[in-house]
Design a protein around this nucleic acid. Sequence first.
DNA 1: CAGCATCCGCCGTGATACTG
DNA 2: CAGTATCACGGCGGATGCTG
Lengths: 122, 122
Amino acid sequence: MAAATKDKTTCPVCATAEIVCGKWTILIIRDLAAGRSRFCELERSLQGISPRTLSLRLKALEEEGVVARKTYPEVPPRVEYVLTPKGRALLPLIEDMRAFGREWLGMKGDIDTACAPVEAAA
Amino acid sequence: MAAATKDKTTCPVCATAEIVCGKWTILIIRDLAAGRSRFCELERSLQGISPRTLSLRLKALEEEGVVARKTYPEVPPRVEYVLTPKGRALLPLIEDMRAFGREWLGMKGDIDTACAPVEAAA
DNA sequence: CAGCATCCGCCGTGATACTG
DNA sequence: CAGTATCACGGCGGATGCTG
């Protein structure tokens, strides 16, 4: 979701929406918070996402300062993504969504991570 | 934003995301909570939205049980949209978004409604 | 005022294949 | 493993115009 293209600069809600929009964004943040940090891990937990999309989202998130990227110059290239404080500040939002889903949408599963089972939530 | 097309039924976060996604959805809910209830009011507060989109979103929200619609069989047709308890349950989410926007995005304006000035927030 | 119908364009997303 | 390049599709949302 996004928002008014006009004066979004004055609207905290709109601005936040702009960041969180995108089909996978929230899920990526959630999985990052859940401990997954590597590209392929996310690719697996967010099963169904294309590497392209994951890459794009991750990059956008990085530019927004929500995610930090650490590259390890090793032989088998390794990269880890972690939430920045700013990214962590988004977690309450996710908590609310989870609470809402459970309370009003009948999603009783306590492991929302079940959205993409990574072996029963790592 | 949306989510895994596969097992979203088990993921509260995904499911909620599905509802809240869409460029204007959150804003509509916010404005509804802010007191605006008529079609044209929303059209004005969400300046920039097309009647088509507003109509579509409102309908979707209604079908999801987030918004209730009251029609007044009067001469100048009047319709009022109000948040249902379920819709109200989404407010904390918006509050968090607002808080995030203010704290991390520099949106100091306390009236996020400023997103679409309806005469200085009704 | 409320809102539907139609047409159209954009962008996010998916699929697939290839590279460092 | 960790991406990037390309191609193409689909749906959301915008613009306009019409009806009840």
